[in-house]
Every structure is written in C-alpha cells, then in structure tokens.
C-alpha cells in the first residue's frame, strides 16, 4: 500500500523529468524498509494467528466441531450479538460526545489547546482497571450519583446502576472517547478555513456552511474514529467484566474463560476466530460503504 502511495504521490509533487531517471529510485528503499516490519509481523503475528485459526478446527476432533457447537446452541451466538450491540451503542455515544468536543478543541489555540489535549490524553495513561473501580464507587447504591439523585428527590431510594448495560456503556465510552476525539480533531484542525469563508461569501448561512462544508470535510476523521472505537469495543474485557451484570457478558469474557479457566484452547480459538472474522467483515463492509460514499460525492 505504501508502495503505490509513494509512486502515485511522486509525479504530482515532483516536476516532470524527461526520460527515465535512474540516479535514485525509491522502490528498493521502500522494499528494504518494508522487509523488516513485514518479517516481524509474519513471524510474530500472522503465524501465531494462523495457529489459532487452525487450532479451532483441530480438536477435540478435527473438523468444524467447535463451530457447530457455537452455532447450534449455548451462550455463544447470543453473547456475540450482545457484544456487537454494546459496541454499536458505545460507538454512537462516543461519536455524539466527541464531535462537539473536538469542535471546541479545534477552535482553541496556545496554552488552552495544550490543556485541552492534556485533558483528552491523560485518561489514556490511567489503567482501565483503576478506572473501572472508580466507576464502581460512583455507581454503587451508597455512591455519590445515587445520593445526589435521592437528595434532589428524583428517586426515593437508591437504584441499581452497577451491573447494568448503562454502567458498561458509560465505562466503555470513558475509555474509548479519546480514540474518537483525536481523529476528528485532526480532521477539523487540518480543514482549510478559506473554504468556509468561501461558502459564506457565496451567501450560505452558517448552518448551511456547517452542514454542507464542515461536516463533509471532517467526515474522514469521524469515519476513522468510528471504526477505531467499534473494533476496540468488540474486544473489551475488563470494563464489562467489572461493571456489567449477568446480561453484559462480552465475547472476550467467554474467550478468557475458555482459554484460562477451562484450558479449552480449541474452543477459545474458535471463538477468537469468530470475533476476528466478524471484525474483518465489518471493516470490509464499512470501507466499501465509505468508498461508495466518497465516489458519490466526487
């Protein structure tokens, strides 16, 4: 991919030269640069991954036994669907929160911008376990949220907040929000402001400028954020395990159970493969969709 990008980029930026130039060709350099990482990935990522996929078919008997078990009953498919649902919900909430947040951030300059970035980034450096425990304290019946609601008279007695899908969504949004904010922020800050001015000069209302120019121009950022958050959410483990109740079981929890508690690695491999294939299919569908959308706009 980087090869083709490099090749197509050079004719645009470099002045055309007469005849082929053999003084310095980029191709061998790119190949050389790519070899190391490619070997690294092949040996330490693709090979073990292939091993996992094969293992799912290898035992207890060779064949699709584990997959038959997954699709014919048990908790596996419902948990997978629940995982997709949770990931979708988390992604939607992240998008709704991150877009205005990134907009504010994109208007800031100097020290204020530094503070803004620090506020977005610092949570990334805090352990997910610690953050989940913090939410447990906030959400419990004797916690500040329940106390406040009771004091203000919204509820008569503390309600169950912990171990609900609500708690899981809040906890996951808290963890994943930066991954939505950052790409959107980047696209907003790199937006050419003169385009907006041009729109205004041509007589468009601010709302129209926003909808017709600003939003479409920042869509690639949002699109990157959506896919980052969604795919990460699919594999979430700690937050749903600690904040979720009986029905918030995510597929990663089942995989961990099979791999660590039961040492049933073939089943763990089959479940992991199912998760991977689901994620890849969704990614492919999504990228096709965005490509189609871009073509339509162009």
């Amino acid at each position: 991919m980087s090869l083709t990008a490099g090749q197509t980029a050079s004719p645009d930026t470099l002045p055309a030269r007469p005849g082929p130039v053999r003084v310095w060709s980029q191709r061998p350099v790119y190949v050389l640069l790519a070899t190391g990482p490619a070997l690294f990935l092949a040996a330490l990522f693709l090979l073990p991954l292939a091993h996992v996929v094969v293992k799912g078919f290898a035992a207890p008997a060779s064949g699709p036994g584990n997959y038959t078990r997954i699709v014919t009953g048990g908790p596996y498919l419902p948990v997978m669907l629940g995982t997709l649902e949770t990931a979708l919900m988390v992604t939607a909430v992240c998008l709704v929160l991150a877009y205005p947040l990134a907009f504010v951030g994109s208007r800031l300059q100097g020290r204020l911008y530094t503070v803004f970035m620090a506020l977005i980034l610092i949570p990334l450096f805090t352990s997910v376990v610690v953050r989940s425990y913090a939410w447990m304290v906030l959400f419990q019946r004797s916690g500040p949220i329940n106390q406040t609601l009771v004091t203000l008279g919204f509820i008569e007695s503390p309600i169950r907040l912990l171990q609900t899908p609500f708690a899981v969504t809040v906890g996951m949004v808290h963890v994943l929000l930066p991954m939505m904010v950052l790409p959107i922020l980047t696209s907003m800050r790199s937006l050419d402001g003169t385009l907006l001015q041009a729109g205004e000069i041509m007589g468009a209302s601010p709302a129209r400028v926003f909808v017709r120019i600003f939003v479409p121009m920042t869509l690639p950022g949002a699109s990157a954020g959506i896919i980052l958050v969604f795919i990460s959410a699919l594999g979430f483990f700690v937050t749903p395990a600690l904040l979720g109740g009986a029905r918030s079981t995510m597929i990663a929890v089942l995989i961990e159970q099979q791999a660590v508690d039961l040492l049933n690695w073939p089943m763990a491999s089959a479940l992991a493969t199912m998760l991977l294939v689901t994620a890849v299919l969704i990614y492919m569908g999504y990228s096709r969709l965005t490509r189609r959308f871009n073509e339509m706009r162009a």
């Binding site: 159970q257 099979q258 508690d261």
Partner: peptide, 10 residues
C-alpha cells in the same frame, strides 16, 4: 457447566 451457566446468565 460453564456453557449452561453462561446461557443462564443471558
């Protein structure tokens, strides 16, 4: 047992 328990949880 884990399979039945997880199904029950859902």
């Amino acid at each position: 047992a884990a399979e039945k328990f997880n199904s029950w949880m859902l």
